[in-house]
Lab assay of single mutants.
Amino acid sequence: MGFKLLSKLLVYLTASIMAIASPLAFSVDSSGEYPTVSEIPVGEVRLYQIADGVWSHIATQSFDGAVYPSNGLIVRDGDELLLIDTAWGAKNTAALLAEIEKQIGLPVTRAVSTHFHDDRVGGVDVLRAAGVATYASPSTRRLAEVEGNEIPTHSLEGLSSSGDAVRFGPVELFYPGAAHSTDNLIVYVPSASVLYGGCAIYELSRTSAGNVADADLAEWPTSIERIQQHYPEAQFVIPGHGLPGGLDLLKHTTNVVKAHTNRSVVE
Rank of each mutant, 00 (worst) to 15 (best):
G123K: 02
Y196E: 02
V189K: 08
Y12Q: 15
E33W: 09
V75H: 02
T253G: 08
Q103G: 08
R76Y: 05
G197M: 03
G197N: 02
Q103D: 09
V108L: 03
R206H: 04
R142N: 12
Y196Q: 06
E145N: 07
A129Q: 06
I224W: 07
E44D: 10
V42G: 08
E172K: 12
S113Y: 14
A87G: 12
Y231N: 13
R206A: 09
G32S: 09
G131S: 03
V126L: 06
L81R: 00
F168K: 04
G177E: 01
A213Q: 14
L195D: 02
Y12G: 09
A129G: 07
E172M: 10
Q61R: 04
Q235D: 07
T93A: 06
R120D: 13
A213K: 15
V11C: 06
L156Q: 12
A90W: 10
P35L: 11
K258A: 08
I104R: 03
K91T: 14
L6K: 10
I17P: 12
A94M: 09
V265H: 03
G148M: 14
L47E: 08
V146D: 03
V212N: 11
G105S: 04
S27A: 09
D118A: 15
V124F: 00
G78W: 03
D79I: 14
V212A: 06
P170G: 11
S30D: 13
L47W: 06
A136D: 03
L47P: 08
S62A: 05
A215C: 10
C199P: 01
G78L: 08
K102M: 13
I74F: 04
H260N: 02
V42R: 11
S161K: 04
S161H: 03
I84Y: 13
P232H: 15
S16I: 01
S113D: 01
T36N: 13
G158R: 09
T140K: 00
L250I: 01
G53Q: 11
V108P: 09
R263V: 03
V126Q: 06
S161V: 13
Y12L: 13
A15R: 03
T222A: 09
G245Q: 07
V194M: 02
W220L: 10
L106W: 10
W220R: 09
R128D: 03
D79T: 05
L243R: 11
L9Y: 06
V237F: 14
R141M: 08
I40C: 10
G2A: 02
S7A: 05
L185K: 07
W220C: 07
L243M: 02
H154D: 15
N255R: 09
D79K: 13
T109R: 07
G122E: 14
V237I: 15
F26K: 08
I84S: 09
M18D: 02
L243H: 14
R120Y: 14
T153C: 06
E44W: 06
P138T: 14
Y34C: 13
V121P: 01
L96S: 06
V212I: 05
E219M: 09
G32F: 00
S137L: 05
E267Q: 02
P239F: 02
P107C: 11
D29I: 14
R142K: 07
D214N: 04
D79F: 08
L143W: 10
T153M: 00
P244R: 12
A129W: 14
V189P: 00
L81G: 11
T253N: 12
S205K: 02
I201R: 02
R76P: 11
P41W: 07
V166N: 14
A234H: 02
V166K: 06
D125H: 01
I227P: 01
D183H: 11
I227Q: 01
P23D: 14
S161G: 10
T261G: 09
G105Q: 14
S38F: 12
L159K: 03
V265R: 06
R76D: 07
R76Q: 02
H154T: 00
G240T: 03
L156G: 03
I224E: 11
E150M: 15
Y12W: 13
S193L: 10
G78Q: 13
V124E: 03
Q103I: 14
K4G: 03
F63W: 03
V67R: 08
G89S: 11
V189Q: 10
L127H: 00
K4L: 05
P41E: 09
W220P: 06
A51H: 11
S56N: 15
A213M: 10
Q49G: 07
G53A: 10
S223C: 12
K91P: 11
Q235G: 10
P176Y: 01
L96I: 15
I74E: 08
V124N: 10
Q229K: 05
D29F: 06
S56K: 06
L143I: 15
L217Y: 01
S137W: 14
S264Q: 14
T114I: 00
A178Y: 01
R120I: 15
G245A: 08
T182C: 11
K4Q: 01
T109G: 12
H117N: 00
T253L: 01
L204W: 14
L195G: 01
E101D: 14
T153S: 15
R76T: 09
D119N: 05
V112C: 06
I224C: 07
H117W: 00
H180S: 00
D85L: 00
L82V: 15
T153F: 14
Y196D: 06
L83D: 14
A215G: 09
A200V: 08
E267C: 13
I17E: 06
T86L: 07
W88T: 01
V256T: 09
G177R: 00
V171R: 01
Y188C: 04
K258G: 06
E44Q: 04
G210H: 02
A130H: 15
G65V: 06
L6N: 15
P221S: 11
L243Y: 02
G158M: 02
T222V: 09
P232E: 14
A192S: 14
A19L: 07
N71F: 15
I104G: 02
A94V: 12
L96V: 13
I40N: 02
S27H: 02
A87Q: 14
S139K: 10
L159G: 09
I201K: 02
A129D: 15
S62G: 08
L81I: 13
A129H: 09
K91V: 13
L47K: 14
G177Q: 02
L217C: 15
I100R: 00
D119E: 01
F63G: 11
A213H: 13
E99K: 02
L81W: 01
P152T: 15
H260V: 06
A165S: 10
V194D: 01
P152Y: 15
L185D: 01
L156M: 11
L9S: 12
V146S: 08
S16V: 14
P239H: 02
A178C: 06
S70I: 11
S22W: 14
L249M: 04
G197A: 08
I201M: 14
D183N: 04
I20W: 14
S193V: 08
V265L: 04
E80F: 05
A95F: 15
L24P: 04
H260L: 03
L106C: 15
R263K: 02
Q235A: 12
W55D: 09
H180K: 02
H57E: 05
Y188S: 12
Y231G: 10
I58G: 06
I58L: 03
S56E: 08
A87P: 06
A15Y: 15
R206M: 13
F26S: 06
E39P: 08
S162V: 06
E267R: 05
N92G: 13
T134H: 15
E39I: 12
F168A: 12
V75L: 07
L81D: 00
T109F: 09
P244V: 13
Y34Q: 09
S205P: 04
F3C: 08
D119C: 05
A94F: 04
V11R: 11
S56V: 06
A111Y: 07
S62T: 06
L10K: 06
G246H: 06
V45A: 08
H252V: 06
L250K: 00
V11T: 11
Y68G: 06
A15W: 02
A59C: 04
V212R: 09
L106I: 14
N149D: 13
N262T: 11
I201E: 03
V75S: 06
A209G: 11
I104Q: 01
S191V: 08
S70Y: 14
F3R: 06
H180I: 00
N71G: 06
T261V: 13
G53Y: 03
I40A: 11
L185H: 12
E147Y: 15
Y68A: 06
G53V: 08
L24E: 08
L247T: 05
K8V: 06
R167T: 10
V266P: 02
E33Y: 15
S193I: 03
A90D: 15
A130W: 09
E267S: 05
F63K: 05
H117S: 00
S56A: 04
G148P: 02
G246P: 04
A165Q: 12
T207H: 14
S22C: 11
L247G: 10
Y48V: 07
D164N: 13
D77E: 06
